[in-house]
């Protein structure tokens, strides 16, 4: 084991850091074009760095403002998924009634056979669009995996012994069966969040790319790509810049999580 800087870690941080920075700080510094600016200006003209898109908006400005919705929706969907999935998983793990556990799992497993994108598309097709539905839909499809994860973390053989010791010490049920397992699951959940964030980003940006998400005028990276789809040859940078940002965000995050996990478990 050498102590030299880890290449994967450096590459991962750079890849994930740039789009994250753009998403969080970008909106404060983003250049904007006045209303009525000519659409599809080439890069470097009329005070723009990367030109304008089909609506005459500054492409650099879009890149800098469009990440906030990506990050915000992802955080929202993850928070909702954990808020619902964690107690559900804990309850299934805690129950002594096996039929309840089985029934609960079967119920959340129904979500397992619905491809994530399909859920968001069907929601959109029936007029359920916008921030709220995106978050609900993206959170819903994470539930089966989450509930199973929490349930098995709470039920891990190591946990059982702690639980038994607490029963013997006369601790109340909620402490031995809900609170203590919840504490134990925190680590597993943190690890899971690292990998799940990419899945959520993917399904959310893909839905936006397919026009099944936010308003067409949103600067969201996925929406901008969708709206500018026809100007691929005229002004490729309007599509390529947000696409590259999404690529970097996803690849970087996954590399980072994977490497950090790897350090904990293997080698």
């Amino acid at each position: 084991m050498t102590r030299r800087p880890d290449a994967t870690l450096v590459v991962g941080s750079l890849l994930a850091g740039i789009p994250l920075l753009a998403a969080l700080v970008g909106p404060l510094v983003a250049p904007q074009t006045p209303p009525g600016t000519t659409p599809l200006l080439p890069p470097g003209t009329e005070g723009t760095v990367l030109g304008t898109d089909v609506y005459g908006r500054d492409v650099l400005g879009l890149a800098l403002t469009g990440g906030l919705s990506v990050v915000g929706l992802t955080v929202g969907a993850l928070a909702l998924a954990y808020a619902v999935g964690t107690p559900l998983g804990l309850l299934l793990a805690a129950t002594r009634r096996r039929w309840l556990d089985t029934a609960g799992l079967r119920l959340v497993d129904v979500a397992l056979v619905l491809p994530p994108l399909l859920v968001l598309l069907v929601l959109a097709a029936t007029g359920r669009r916008g921030v709220l539905w995106l978050i609900v839909g993206a959170a819903f499809v994470q539930l089966p995996a989450l509930v199973r994860l929490v349930r098995s973390a709470a039920r891990a053989p190591g946990r059982l012994a702690v639980q038994e010791a607490q029963i013997q010490a006369g601790e109340p049920w909620w402490r031995s069966h809900l609170l203590e397992p919840a504490r134990a699951a925190v680590g597993a959940l943190a690890v899971d969040a690292g990998t799940r964030v990419v899945l959520v980003v993917t399904v959310l940006t893909s839905a936006n790319f397919l026009g099944a998400g936010l308003e067409p005028t949103s600067p969201d990276w996925g929406v901008v790509i969708q709206q500018n789809g026809d100007s691929l040859f005229l002004a490729p940078e309007t599509l390529v810049v947000p696409a590259v940002l999404v690529v970097a965000l996803c690849a970087g995050t996954n590399l980072l999580t994977d490497r950090l996990l790897d350090r904990r478990e293997y080698v």
Binding site: A161, V162, A165, A169, R183
Partner: peptide, 28 residues
Amino acid sequence: QYVHQDPRATFAPRRAVLEQVARPAVRL
């Protein structure tokens, strides 16, 4: 009272051992 075969597994990892030893006297 049962003393487990693998005592390490029976202690919650993030709390002081003394607190956990004292609990049965408090609760029971």
